[in-house]
Design a protein around this nucleic acid. Structure first.
Lengths: 122, 122
DNA sequence: GCTCTTTGTTTCGATCTCGAATCAATTGGC
DNA sequence: GCCAATTGATTCGAGATCGAAACAAAGAGC
């Protein structure tokens, strides 16, 4: 059960996932924002603004702005380094993890995200 | 040789490709722009503004703007329907195909795009 | 021929992002 | 203690994008 073998299959997988995210009501993240979010989730901690800027080859202000957006969405959180007050650690959140889990599910299965429409029902 | 099996592997594949595109000097396309470009490339022709808007579940002005950007980049081209002057067909270009081929290569291999830095050398 | 419908584009104000430069806060060297 | 270096945030003007509404052009129906 191979998910992708050829280049066309790889591109079509990317297309299906991209179209699904565009169609969904989930927030449309920039490539940079998504790269930050996934790096924080999948790469070993700790993550600093400087480190993320170096990893993504962009300026620090770009990281700060991406973190502003991701924090506003509740997908990551900032925490001051108690040892060195200049550093800011970027940490995962449950909401960010849920967003990425949904994306992973879409990549694997091609399904649109299960709609959390009834969250107020309980 | 399975490329992705688990959700974490799928997400990490997405992360590597996203980070590679962010780091590269290739134009950063919006998710919508990329969805339009891939749909034009991978789905059967013809493609109209209205059809793309329906497929991606966005308004027609959003498609027009995405086409403006993609046309400016030379990644797609517009052509009037000779049979019905109201329709605009969106067609592939060599440059758009090359961009997507590079993306497909990155997805399959994880490699950064081969730099076309020496194109003036010949 | 005239009107209604369809298709794609443009305008509008608001919001967001960008890179470069500047700023504020903290730490380290001496 | 004091000054330079480091880190992250902020400002600035320019440019891009957004959704909704208004618009222009072409075709369809009668």
């Amino acid at each position: 059960m191979e998910l992708v073998q050829t280049q066309v299959e790889a591109l079509d997988l990317w297309r299906r996932v991209t179209v699904t995210t565009v169609r969904s009501d989930a927030p449309d993240l920039t490539a940079r924002q998504l790269a930050v979010l996934m790096t924080v989730r999948l790469q070993p901690a700790p993550h600093t603004v400087r480190g993320l800027a170096a990893a993504l080859n962009v300026g620090k202000p770009a990281i700060t702005r991406a973190l502003d957006t991701l924090t506003r969405l509740g997908f990551v959180q900032r925490r001051r380094d108690p040892k060195d007050g200049r550093n800011v650690f970027v940490e995962r959140t449950d909401k960010g993890d849920a967003f990425l889990d949904q994306l992973g599910h879409t990549i694997l299965t091609g399904d649109a995200p299960a709609r959390p429409r009834l969250e107020l029902a309980s």
